[in-house]
Design a binder for these strands. Sequence first.
DNA 1: TACCATTTGTGCGTATGTATG
DNA 2: CCATACATACGCACAAATGGT
Lengths: 227, 227
Amino acid sequence: MGWEDVREEVLRRIRARDWPPGEVIPGEEALAAEFGVARATVNRALRELAEAGLLERRRKAGTRVALLPVRKATLDISIIRQEVEARGESYAHRVLAQRMEGISLAAAVRMGVPAGASMLFLETLHLAGGRPFAHEVRWLNPDVLPGRVVPDFGAVSANEWLVQNVAYATGDIAFSAEAATAAEAAALGIAAGDPVFVTERVTWTAEAPITFVRLLHGPGYRLRTMV
Amino acid sequence: MGWEDVREEVLRRIRARDWPPGEVIPGEEALAAEFGVARATVNRALRELAEAGLLERRRKAGTRVALLPVRKATLDISIIRQEVEARGESYAHRVLAQRMEGISLAAAVRMGVPAGASMLFLETLHLAGGRPFAHEVRWLNPDVLPGRVVPDFGAVSANEWLVQNVAYATGDIAFSAEAATAAEAAALGIAAGDPVFVTERVTWTAEAPITFVRLLHGPGYRLRTMV
DNA sequence: TACCATTTGTGCGTATGTATG
DNA sequence: CCATACATACGCACAAATGGT
């Protein structure tokens, strides 16, 4: 009787409505006694279910079945190369533009820096099987580059280079659907106005913002949760 | 010195590249001795970092800093009413269609049932502040309804009703960008061909599929991760 | 291949901390 | 202020996986 068994049994009771939504379930001590395990084992099982949003736990108040469980879907945000190769296609990328430039207002707002601040601007096209897969526009804080030396992003994509060479960071991600502009459409080989799947990501360290990326995927792209 | 302190210190060392990507870090025992805590405490900290994708752990092989950390972004999938009310807007919904019908091929494939199987078809418009917020098309397995009695989905949306009245389930979610069809555009009050943010969700119990939902959000909708 | 040593994974019993009804 | 229930920690033990001999 491990903690996973306890988790499954508790989950079964929730699903079977032995313990209906909103109801307080027996305490850790009681469950430990019932299942013949240590309290720590029950704790581990209940903690997992609480993290998944199925239980709500509060000291002294006890543990209750969530009334409106907020499902937590987890997305695996991998490097584009990995994503492409996982599909069994060959990956390549082309740097379309690379220059120092005053940051755009929209990007400045998201990165939390003054508009017009001098940043490295990068425009990249990612290819899968030789065909356009994603179009990337990136603003990169040059301060995070060791010695402010710009690496060769033609060899390794900025995405990958940052992951491997700059500090691990926290970030924010947002997804939306937009209509492709003429320029974006041209890069992706689709028609202007076609719907594109947009991923916007901001990453930063404790001290400074690192980068803001806007990634466009053409029609047919699906982002799936890994359950 | 709690497990969170250990986690932060280990994270700091990873970020500072004291332990570069790919490198094996000291074992639990050694870290426990260094930090003056029990091994279980170190274990808890390292386990969390491994779940976050920053460490890779294997028995006997030890713990190493991930070479290509796969960031795990978590999305809170709440019911639409909550989402709307969280924006400070009033929620309402209208059932546009409700009938028993042979399931469409596309939906049958996703639900894993024979095409043409008799399912409850539901079309709903969700309103935020009186304006169209999302358009929902749903196929619902009537077997999951207690006594096969169809509830009044005009009073409580199917989404919410299912969460509260049917077994908790596992599911699969996918997001994409598509062009609105004429009918969808009319329902959402946008132009045909406008990009829409599409969420498709399948849920099932251990025994049977429950429902397949296709949810369309009009322009301006953003799905954000909760980091 | 067979075995051994190592490292993480999990469990128990106990104790104390902490939020809170 | 107290009693309660969860949160965390310790030390020990054994299981399971697996790299190496």
